[in-house]
């Protein structure tokens, strides 16, 4: 029995089923990316997907594109070289919360500041899954991790505000439950000229859920459904109804000079001066 036409077209089906745990939503986010790519009609041969290290970064092994599984935290830096050296390529980076905002945090803020035409998808499951459940920069305050057995003492990053503050010109947050808007954000991010970041709130039933008594995968998906509110709706909600709610939606959409175009402009200007 074959899988769906979409999966057959864009996945390396020989490598499936994937290594992710039952109920892990990384598979949902990865499929949503493929739907976005399909709807945009990107050429597989001209699309490069780069990842770092961690559960989310294993996605590239399953995707039938030009793929690079790099070192921990450095995917954006590798991707910067790919894009600048060959601007005709669409370059998409898949990263996790630890990969993108802890070990790779410096590259995140600088890629955003540079406004280079890359799309960063952070699959945020609020935990280090691959290594067995240590707290990450997005694990909520007081939640449990194997390295925070008495609760996380730190405050978490808000990745949307981080990317916005660093200068990203397209910023959105979706969830693995709200798939249709998620696909829309992925499409808008890929089409956006400049640095785009979409945070996808994912669930990790095995390493986050068990420690924090979050319930089954189904219960965690219900939590995404019930606690995430579209930003435009949230803005209209009375204060008392906002308790315990989180927002998703598009937060930044602006045009600023894009790095690669600016650089190519310099090459062309110099060429013009030479010819003159």
């Amino acid at each position: 029995m074959r899988s769906s036409q979409l999966v057959e077209k864009y996945f390396r089906t020989k490598n499936l089923p994937h290594i992710w745990c039952p109920g892990c939503s990384l598979g949902i986010a990865t499929r949503s990316l493929v739907v976005a790519i399909d709807e945009l009609g990107l050429d597989k041969n001209k699309t490069v997907i780069v990842s770092g290290i961690g559960c989310s970064s294993r996605a590239v092994g399953y995707l039938d594109f030009n793929t690079i599984h790099t070192t921990h935290g450095r995917a954006l830096a590798f991707a910067t070289g790919v894009k600048l050296a060959n601007p005709e390529l669409h370059v998409i980076v898949i990263s996790g919360d630890g990969d993108a905002s802890a070990i790779g945090g410096n590259h995140l803020i600088h890629a955003a500041r540079r406004n280079i035409d890359l799309t960063l998808l952070i699959f945020n499951n609020n935990i280090y899954g691959m290594t067995g459940g240590q707290f990450s920069p997005t694990t909520p305050h007081a939640a449990l991790g194997t390295t925070a057995p008495f609760g996380v003492v730190e405050q978490p990053f808000d990745l949307v505000k981080l990317a916005e503050g660093a200068g990203a010109t397209y910023v959105a947050r979706g969830t693995a439950f709200h798939v249709n808007p998620l696909v829309k954000y992925y499409k808008n991010a890929i089409e956006h000229k400049g640095f785009s970041m979409v945070e996808t709130i994912c669930i990790c039933p095995t390493y986050y859920g068990r420690q924090n008594k979050s319930g089954t995968a189904v219960q965690m998906m219900h939590w995404l459904k019930d606690s995430f509110v579209l930003n435009t709706a949230y803005d209209k909600m009375p204060e008392e109804k906002r308790q315990g709610k989180h927002v998703y939606g598009e937060f930044v959409k602006k045009d600023l000079p894009e790095y690669v175009e600016e650089y190519v402009g310099i090459i062309e200007r110099l060429k013009g001066e030479e010819d003159a």
């Binding site: 029995m1 074959r2 899988s3 769906s4 999966v7 499936l16 089923p17 745990c21 039952p22 109920g23 039933p205 089954t216 995968a217 189904v218 998906m221 219900h222």
Partner: peptide, 14 residues
């Protein structure tokens, strides 16, 4: 269905 890939998480059912 691609039954052999199912890990039984129950999300589709729910």
């Amino acid at each position: 269905q691609k039954r052999e890939w199912c890990k039984g998480c129950g999300i589709c059912v729910a």
